[in-house]
Simulated scan of single mutants.
Amino acid sequence: MTDLALDHVRRMARYNRWANNRLYDACAMLSPEDYFAPRPSFFGSIHATLNHILVGDSIWLGRFTGSVPAHLTRLDMILHEDLATLRAAREAKDAEIIAFTDGLDSAALSGSFTYRNMRGDEFTDPLFPPLTHFFNHQTHHRGQVHGLLSHAGVEPPELDLIYFLRESGQS
């Protein structure tokens, strides 16, 4: 794998942290009633969607590292009951993601890994495409929360990668 691919996954890890910080800042502007309110979305609320992103990230990062937390048994789990503890867990997970991508080298990124899905089926895949999926999954669900924020009366933040690149000076 090229240095460009390594640079890309490291940039995406930092973009993920940046976008999450902006999204959580916007969510903190909501009243608890609006934050937890049932909404027409796949996971049913802003809080549940943010929990899902953390669940998905924890599962995939665990697959990449060979240590999926055993307590993660459903994609709709509520890991944290309030925004403050969810945000703290999110920040910790983002730090883990950055540490993981910073620890990769070309050989690891070009290599394969073996994991089990939630049904117990075993797969061996090259690392790079699922790692790309990992970042795409985060962006997909952040976009859902972004839309839910606009319906809740809070101006959604700019989350596009280009804004991160300009703000951070990365290219």
Score class of each variant (00 low, 15 high):
Met12Leu: 15
Val55Met: 09
Arg14Trp: 10
Ile46Gly: 04
Gly111Glu: 13
Leu159Ala: 13
Ile97Thr: 11
Leu30Val: 09
Phe164Ile: 07
Ile46Thr: 08
Leu50Lys: 13
Val9Phe: 12
Arg87Trp: 00
Leu127Glu: 05
Asp3Cys: 05
Gly66Glu: 02
Ala99Gly: 02
Ile162Phe: 14
Gly56Cys: 11
Asn136Lys: 01
Val145Ile: 07
Leu72Asn: 01
Ala107Asp: 10
Asn51Glu: 08
Phe113Asp: 04
Arg39Pro: 09
Ser110Gly: 12
His52Cys: 15
Ser150Ala: 13
Ala84Pro: 01
Leu148Lys: 02
Leu159Asp: 03
Thr114Asn: 05
His52Gly: 11
Leu148Cys: 08
Gly66Ser: 02
Phe43Met: 03
Leu165Ser: 15
Gly62Cys: 04
Arg166Glu: 14
Gly44Ala: 13
Pro40Cys: 14
Pro129Asn: 03
Phe36Thr: 09
Thr124Glu: 00
Leu72Val: 03
Glu122Ile: 14
Leu165Tyr: 13
Leu127His: 02
Ala48Tyr: 02
Ile162Asp: 08
Asn21Ile: 08
His71Glu: 15
His80Ser: 00
Arg116Asn: 10
Asn16Gln: 04
Asp160Asn: 06
Asp82Glu: 14
Gln170Asn: 13
Asn136Pro: 00
Ala84His: 07
Ser58Arg: 15
Leu104Gln: 09
Asp160Met: 05
Arg90Asn: 00
Arg63Phe: 13
Val145Lys: 01
Ser168Pro: 07
Leu83Tyr: 01
Glu155Phe: 12
Met118Thr: 04
Arg10Thr: 09
Asn21His: 15
Pro126Cys: 08
His80Leu: 01
Phe134Trp: 11
Leu165Asn: 13
Thr132Phe: 14
Arg119Ser: 15
Gly44Phe: 12
Met1Cys: 07
Leu131Asp: 09
Gly56Arg: 00
Glu33Trp: 05
Leu131Trp: 02
Asp105Arg: 10
Ala89Gly: 02
Ser45Val: 03
Glu167His: 09
His47Val: 12
Thr65Pro: 06
Thr101Met: 09
Pro32Gly: 09
Arg166Thr: 13
Val55Arg: 12
His140Val: 12
Ser171Gly: 12
Ile97Glu: 11
Leu149Gly: 02
Leu30Arg: 12
Asp105Asn: 15
Leu148Glu: 11
Leu131Gly: 03
Leu4Met: 10
Ala84Met: 09
Leu50Tyr: 11
Ala84Glu: 15
Asp94Phe: 04
Ala28Asp: 11
Asn117Trp: 07
Asp7Trp: 12
Ser58Val: 10
Ala88Arg: 00
Thr65His: 04
Ser168Thr: 14
Leu148Val: 06
Pro157Thr: 07
Gly111Val: 11
Tyr35Trp: 07
Asn20Lys: 03
Met29Glu: 14
Asp160Lys: 05
Gln144Asp: 06
Thr139Pro: 01
Met12Tyr: 15
Val68Leu: 12
Phe135Pro: 00
Phe100Asp: 06
